[in-house]
């Protein structure tokens, strides 16, 4: 039996849907459930329902063989895993944003608030701009409004939240979509099972396109 870690949050519906199309039904699963472990009807897949940021960790440590999670969390965790498929849903981008009238970000003494301090640090290091990061766990948009930071690094889906808070995108860092990742040891030991699983998902994806 394969163990799959699934990220809670905005991509759950799509992820469950794609598993259903491949043939895995989770009868007792619903989003409000307090249960953390689910089995599919045929007892072939064990699903761990965990916080999105933790999915790369579960997979890297081998607590789950595979995982479905956003690219943002994979980049932030720098997890040493295989990234085998782009599932093409949960698309958004990770961007630098600041106050509307700022137009560009300062080149020194920059304070960046973000849920993704690693991604932010890497991006600005490549630009040779030294920054200080403030790790926040939500409502990151608030930080520049009250002067906690100069700019933010966050995911942008529609841009509505930014708009409503008088912020604008200053730079794009990366495109984000949901990925299927695998633990390297699991992939070696259960190569055929995992490859078959990937193939099934891939053919569902191809039909969708």
């Amino acid at each position: 039996m394969l163990t799959i870690a699934l990220a809670k949050g905005r991509t759950v519906k799509d992820a469950i849907q794609i598993l259903r199309e491949v043939g895995y039904e989770f009868p007792d699963f619903h989003e409000e459930s307090r249960k953390l472990i689910f089995y599919d009807e045929q007892q072939q897949l064990k699903m761990l329902f965990v916080k999105a940021v933790d999915v790369p960790t579960y997979v890297e440590k081998g607590a789950a063989d595979i995982g479905i999670v956003g690219k943002d969390h994979i980049l932030e965790a720098k997890a040493d895993v295989y990234e085998l498929l782009d599932l093409k849903f949960g698309k958004c981008k990770i961007s630098v944003a600041g106050l509307k009238d700022s137009h560009s970000y300062p080149m020194e003494n920059v304070t960046v608030a973000s849920k993704y301090p690693t991604i932010a640090r890497q991006f600005f290091m490549r630009k040779n701009i030294p920054i200080e990061t403030i790790k926040l766990n939500g409502s990151v948009e608030l930080a520049p409004l009250i002067g906690l930071s100069d700019i933010i690094v966050d995911i942008v889906e529609t841009g509505k939240t930014l708009q409503e808070n008088n912020l604008m995108v200053l730079d794009d860092i990366a495109k984000i979509s949901t990925r299927l990742i695998a633990n390297k040891a699991s992939f070696a030991i259960q190569t055929e099972v995992i490859q078959l699983f990937i193939q099934k998902i891939q053919s569902v994806l191809e039909v969708k396109q």
Binding site: G62, N183, K184, A185, I189
Partner: peptide
């Protein structure tokens, strides 16, 4: 690799 250990 062995089963149960995520690293080589």
């Amino acid at each position: 690799f062995i089963k149960g250990v995520g690293k080589p």
